[in-house]
Amino acid sequence: MSRAAERKDHPLSMRLPEADIAMIDRAAGLRGRSRTDFVREAAVRAAEDVLMQALPIRMSPEGFDAFMDVLAQPGRPVPEMVEVLTRPAPWESEKTAGR
């Protein structure tokens, strides 16, 4: 007699209002995902965000000193950011820029 393989997936049941289900289904459809895949991915992403905010960052004293040294240095402009921040907004035209 063979032993049944141990199940690795665990069910999760939720009761949601119809409007929530409709919104989830619409968003899942736009992503080409099933409702289950969409909700699982969103729940795992939200859980990771919470855990990343709650977990301390650990580093060696040498690593911390190097990190603090980098923070203490003066900032340097990033050419791509300077270009983005100095270009006119898409709704601005040359005619309205001089007003």
Rank of each mutant, 00 (worst) to 15 (best):
19 A>G: 03
73 Q>F: 01
94 E>I: 05
57 I>R: 14
21 I>P: 01
85 L>N: 13
51 L>H: 00
99 R>Q: 08
71 L>H: 01
76 R>V: 12
50 V>F: 01
21 I>D: 02
70 V>W: 14
43 A>N: 02
98 G>Y: 04
59 M>H: 05
69 D>N: 13
40 R>V: 15
76 R>N: 07
99 R>H: 07
93 S>C: 01
23 M>C: 06
94 E>A: 06
26 R>I: 10
41 E>H: 10
67 F>W: 15
67 F>Y: 14
97 A>I: 07
26 R>F: 15
39 V>L: 13
85 L>D: 03
69 D>F: 09
95 K>L: 02
95 K>S: 05
35 R>I: 13
78 V>F: 07
71 L>W: 08
31 R>A: 09
96 T>R: 02
85 L>T: 02
85 L>G: 03
1 M>H: 14
66 A>W: 12
98 G>D: 07
41 E>N: 06
29 G>L: 05
30 L>M: 04
95 K>T: 09
9 D>S: 10
52 M>H: 13
63 G>A: 15
99 R>I: 04
51 L>N: 02
48 E>M: 05
60 S>Q: 07
26 R>G: 14
93 S>I: 02
78 V>Q: 02
6 E>L: 03
10 H>M: 04
2 S>Y: 10
19 A>N: 10
61 P>N: 15
91 W>E: 04
85 L>H: 08
18 E>G: 05
3 R>A: 12
